[in-house]
Amino acid sequence: MTAPNPAPPGAQLGDWVAGVTELVDAGFDYLDLLTVVDWPDAGEFEVVIHLVNGDAQGVFAHTRIDREAPVLDSLVGILPAANWHERELAEMFGVTMTGHPEPTRLLLADSPVAHPLRKDVPLPRRQDRPWPGAKPEPGRRSRRTPRPHGAPDQPDRDG
């Protein structure tokens, strides 16, 4: 199978299930990707789906849901392959999947970290260990404290 052609950014769907159903009916019936992007500053989760048709053409679609009480209608009725994707999102981001036929844990063992892919979830081990790059280079008074790559600002352990 050839790689799907680059798809345009895709539409923001107002009605998630209806919008995706429209795409599936238009031939984009292969579920390639279903995931969530966390936008903590906006207070939103962005749900992203990538669907592929028989000619290996892809299409993206998005919808935004409230981050504090994230609820999303399940796509399993129209895309059975969404079953595990949605269970994964329920665990990793804490999204409640309305109408999911099997809303149980999929990947995570019992863990003290509730929804680990949320950007504001601190990684306990990073807080136990200071970043070695925080020291200033010799002879230079740093104007700002450098931050490690890939680590969103995390609340202090005590704060």
Binding site: A109, P124, R126
Partner: peptide
Amino acid sequence: YWDSYAVTS
């Protein structure tokens, strides 16, 4: 993965 929530050190 030393800082992961799921991986043993």
